[in-house]
Simulated scan of single mutants.
Amino acid sequence: MFATNLLERRRKPQRITDQAWDQLVSAVGSAGDAARLARQHTSHMASEAGHRVGPATGEARQRAMAAVDALAGRRPAMPWAWIAGAAAAGVALGWLAGAMARSAIAHRDGTDSVDGRIEFVEVDEPTGSSLRP
């Protein structure tokens, strides 16, 4: 009897320890699943926020640099690329308008000449009788 009581006393703490260990493993496993789910959710939210904020950061950086330049007394640089592009577009549109105007005038007058001049050519008549009918 003494031996059975002693074995039961030893088994009871071991059983409690085993149960506690199983519960701990289960809790850690479910916490790991919850942590993975939370990581995926926050990663998705951060990615979405980055896509929304991305264009705004470029604009904010440009404005901040312009403000720093203004406070330092520097004038903004001339947008030479835009000016050159506008000049090139103006030249192209002017050339196109001129070509269309010349074509319209030639079409209206019924001449094939673009500049509207008619060239006259002098022809010498041959003096021989073999060409006359």
Rank of each mutant, 00 (worst) to 15 (best):
F2A: 13
F2R: 10
A3I: 15
N5G: 09
L6H: 08
L6T: 12
L7M: 10
E8T: 15
R9T: 04
K12P: 06
K12V: 15
T17W: 13
D18W: 09
A20P: 00
A20G: 03
W21H: 08
W21K: 07
Q23H: 11
L24E: 03
V25Q: 10
S26K: 11
A27V: 13
V28F: 14
G29C: 10
A31N: 03
A31P: 00
G32F: 15
D33H: 09
D33W: 02
A35D: 01
L37E: 14
L37N: 12
Q40K: 13
Q40C: 07
H41M: 09
T42Y: 08
S43E: 05
H44L: 11
S47N: 11
S47W: 12
E48V: 12
H51Y: 04
H51E: 13
R52H: 05
R52C: 01
V53C: 01
G54F: 11
P55H: 07
P55T: 03
A56S: 08
G58C: 02
A60P: 05
R61L: 14
R61A: 12
R61C: 11
Q62R: 06
M65L: 11
A66G: 04
A67Q: 10
A67R: 09
V68M: 01
D69K: 10
L71I: 11
L71R: 13
A72E: 15
G73Q: 06
G73Y: 12
G73D: 04
G73A: 05
R74E: 02
R75W: 00
A77Y: 00
M78H: 02
M78K: 03
P79R: 01
P79T: 02
W80C: 07
W80Y: 09
A81N: 07
A84S: 05
A86Q: 03
A88G: 07
G90T: 14
G90K: 06
G90A: 06
G90P: 10
A92C: 04
G94R: 01
W95H: 07
L96V: 11
A99T: 11
A99H: 05
A101Y: 09
R102M: 14
R102G: 07
S103G: 13
S103A: 14
A104R: 04
A104T: 04
A104L: 10
I105R: 04
H107T: 14
H107W: 11
D109M: 09
G110V: 07
G110T: 07
T111W: 03
S113I: 10
V114R: 00
D115T: 14
D115R: 00
G116F: 08
G116R: 00
I118F: 05
I118T: 10
E122T: 15
D124H: 05
D124N: 08
E125H: 13
E125G: 08
P126D: 03
P126T: 01
T127G: 13
G128D: 13
L131H: 06
L131W: 06
L131V: 15
R132A: 12
P133G: 06
